[in-house]
């Protein structure tokens, strides 16, 4: 694996020892195949121990893995005839958000999502997937267009959060996200949201209101990134791990809470290890979700969506 995560170190070390042993014994002409097999069995065991017991913080690291499929990988993997559309018609085109029209499962859809870069140069261009207001406004323009043509809407969410910057504030980051949330609540088309990696706060919710919200197994979704939570709670960003543990940010937690509708299983060890498998899983789940939603009268969808969000919240209710 090209990029190893800190908690994968014992596994990586064991693997390189096995390789060393193989090379050494081959050179010397000694047969140690049974020893090698035993070590490989151990490596497999270790891998299972690690990946079957991932802590929330380890999942955060997997969710941020630079080799995970990006939104464009998913779009290109599950759609045909993707036509990318650019710009918010007001200020500029935000490369941190991509979108367009495409054919999915035989019918036209509109697809939008936050886009992380591949490598440093691309990441600088994509602003690490952190959108400016014009990114949210581009997405909204495409959403309204989808409604006009009665196309289902597919949203991919993978962002640490909306970009906190001077220009972003000047151009109304809060207003842009707020506008998307209220407009998405009212769209008379089916909306499926897939949280593929990071679901960072309002920046995620600005593309995240939907009839069905799906989330990848190792993705995280929270009111705030763990490091920022640690800064606020304990004035120490290094305590991100502790924050990840207490904030309940995993797909499992969110499914238990009824915030998301479905968890999409990742390939063993994470989506980054097998793009094709991950993309196939996403395709199947999205197709199934749209099939269900497209059977409903589109005019009834806003009320159904309202009921879905109306129920969210945990509180007691005593006697008056």
């Amino acid at each position: 694996m090209a990029v190893e995560l800190p908690f994968e170190k014992p596994l990586v070390e064991l693997r390189s020892k096995i390789e060393e042993l193989k090379t050494f014994t081959e050179e010397k002409g000694i047969d140690v195949s049974s020893e090698v097999a035993e070590l490989e069995r151990k490596a497999q065991e270790l891998m299972e121990t690690i990946y079957k017991n991932l802590t929330p913080w380890q999942k955060v690291q997997i969710a941020r893995h630079p080799e995970r499929p990006t939104t464009l990988d998913y779009i290109q993997g599950i759609c045909d005839d993707f036509v990318e559309l650019h710009g918010d018609r007001s200020f500029r085109d935000d490369p941190a958000v991509v979108g367009g029209i495409a054919r999915f499962d035989g019918y036209p859809i509109t697809v939008v999502g936050t886009q992380k870069g591949k490598g440093t140069k691309d990441n600088l261009y994509r602003n690490f997937g952190m959108a400016h207001p014009e990114g949210y406004r581009k997405a909204l323009r495409l959403m309204k267009q989808a409604e006009k043509f009665r196309r289902p809407l597919l949203c991919f969410v993978d962002t640490a959060g909306a970009y906190p910057g001077l220009g972003a504030e000047e151009r109304g980051q809060g207003e842009a996200i707020a506008r998307n949330i209220i407009e998405m609540a009212a769209l008379r088309i089916p909306i499926v949201v897939v949280v593929t990696g990071e679901g960072g706060s309002g920046g995620a919710l600005g593309l995240g209101v939907g009839d069905r919200v799906l989330m990848l197994e190792h993705a995280w979704y929270s009111v705030i990134a763990p490091e920022s939570a640690a800064t606020i709670l304990w004035k120490d960003p290094a305590l991100g791990q502790k924050a990840a543990d207490v904030m309940r940010i995993t797909a499992e937690d969110l499914h238990r809470f009824g915030i998301i509708d479905e968890i999409l299983a990742e390939p063993f060890g994470g989506a980054q290890r097998n793009h094709a498998q991950m993309i196939a899983t996403v395709k199947e789940a999205v197709a199934r979700s749209f099939r269900d939603l497209m059977a409903i009268d589109y005019g009834a969808l806003p009320d159904r969506r309202f009921d879905k969000y109306r129920r969210i919240g945990v509180y007691g209710e005593g006697m008056q």
């Binding site: 949330i181 609540a185 806003p302």
Partner: peptide
């Protein structure tokens, strides 16, 4: 802003209040 101690439930109140305001607007 958000009530951090309520995590995702706090975030989702943004969607909930927006949804009822969408209904009012409609």
């Amino acid at each position: 802003g958000a009530r951090m101690q309520e995590g995702i439930f706090s975030l989702m109140q943004m969607a909930k209040v927006s949804a009822v305001l969408a209904r009012l607007a409609a």
